[in-house]
């Protein structure tokens, strides 16, 4: 009950936060130099035509009127139309988000399993050769910029060996599975199209690795430190004294406590990734939220940028609430009131 109340409170508190965020965003976008109509039409439009287009888009109205127009639209669930594509912003988000979601999940899975696995090995083999090697690798992985690693992976695994496709979300000669959820990986499973499933997975592996490298490194380092610290606690000694096996000590006692700070990293990195990685999507030609945001920024597409950022803010809030709930479930000491 306490938890339910807490969640309700968090959601209600999120509304004014969203409002403040959007107001700040609206002001920043509109005072930034550049004009969306000018950016779109460039040399081609006559001054009269540009003026007409500003009028059609409502950009000739005073800023306060534009602000109220935008918010009244939002209250009725309308994120507006993209200035660049002319399509509803909500359609653009629905179109691109599944692509981003798929590589975000893969990236997070990589960082959870690989990072945690390496972290455990490193902690258990503390100050031994395994530990030094893993720490060294994680330091290198953390230092590598994702775009550079992406290009390197592309060069080695696509250009030189041809093991993976260069980019895109699926092969050209494969038909897209019928859209059920919009997430091709899921749709291909639901329709039993395993070829499409493997194909999409193959397209997402390299971008996910490129993005995951830093998260794997962080997960590895943080989980190692936490496990090492937890293994030194009195209750671990007590457990061992009671005759608990090392497996029980590690998984039931040490890992459960050590994992909480690591979960925060996963949750926030997942939320951060859901906004889309502009550079990775550019390199791997993924038509996701990052590419969409890039286009929005390039063309000063106010409704599009605002729409994406609202979406991102909501996702961040949801992840934050979920994280709190999971904390409470994992750690009985945590109580929300």
């Amino acid at each position: 009950m306490e938890l339910k109340l807490y969640i309700m409170k968090r959601i209600l508190l999120g509304i004014p936060m969203l409002f403040i965020l959007l107001t700040v965003l609206f002001v920043i976008l509109h005072i930034m130099p550049g004009d969306p109509v000018e950016a779109l039409y460039g040399e081609k439009g006559s001054p009269e035509f540009l003026e007409e287009m500003r009028h059609r888009l409502g950009l000739d109205k005073p800023l306060l009127n534009q602000y109220f127009d935008y918010f009244s639209g939002l209250l009725s669930g309308n994120l507006g139309y993209s200035i660049h594509s002319g399509r509803p912003v909500i359609h653009e988000i629905i179109r691109t988000w599944p692509v981003t979601l798929q590589y975000c999940i893969l990236t997070t899975l990589f960082s959870i399993f690989l990072g945690l696995f390496l972290g455990i090995i490193s902690a258990l083999k503390k100050e031994k050769i395994h530990d030094f090697i893993i720490r060294g690798i994680s330091l290198v992985a953390f230092s590598l910029p994702a775009f550079w690693l992406g290009l390197l992976l592309q060069f080695v695994f696509c250009l030189r060996t041809g093991l993976f496709p260069l980019g895109g979300i699926q092969s050209l000669n494969l038909e897209t599975p019928p859209s059920i959820t919009g997430v091709i990986l899921v749709d291909s499973l639901l329709t039993g199209n395993m070829v499409a499933f493997v194909d999409v997975l193959r397209h997402l592996v390299l971008p996910s690795i490129a993005l995951a490298a830093q998260f794997v490194a962080v997960t590895c380092r943080v989980s190692r430190a936490n496990i090492v610290e937890t293994l030194g606690e009195d209750y671990i000694t007590t457990a061992r004294a009671k005759g608990a096996s090392e497996t029980v000590v590690l998984y039931r006692h040490a890992l459960k406590n050590a994992i909480l700070p690591v979960m925060t990293i996963w949750a926030w990195s997942f939320a951060g990734l859901l906004g889309g990685s502009i550079i990775i999507e550019k390199i791997f030609t993924l038509p996701g939220m990052g590419s969409l945001l890039f286009t929005g920024i390039m063309y000063r597409d106010y409704p599009l940028i605002q729409g994406i950022l609202i979406f991102f803010a909501i996702i961040t809030m949801v992840v934050s609430v979920i994280l709190d709930v999971v904390y409470a479930l994992l750690d009985p000491r945590i109580r929300y009131s």
């Binding site: 260069l166 980019g167 895109g168 999507e281 550019k282 390199i283 030609t285 038509p287």
Partner: peptide
């Protein structure tokens, strides 16, 4: 097929994609 940047386009050509 649409590519994100000129580097990707060049690689697509070189790999015969």
């Amino acid at each position: 097929k649409y590519y994100g940047d000129p580097a990707a386009l060049r690689m697509a050509l070189e790999t015969k994609e």
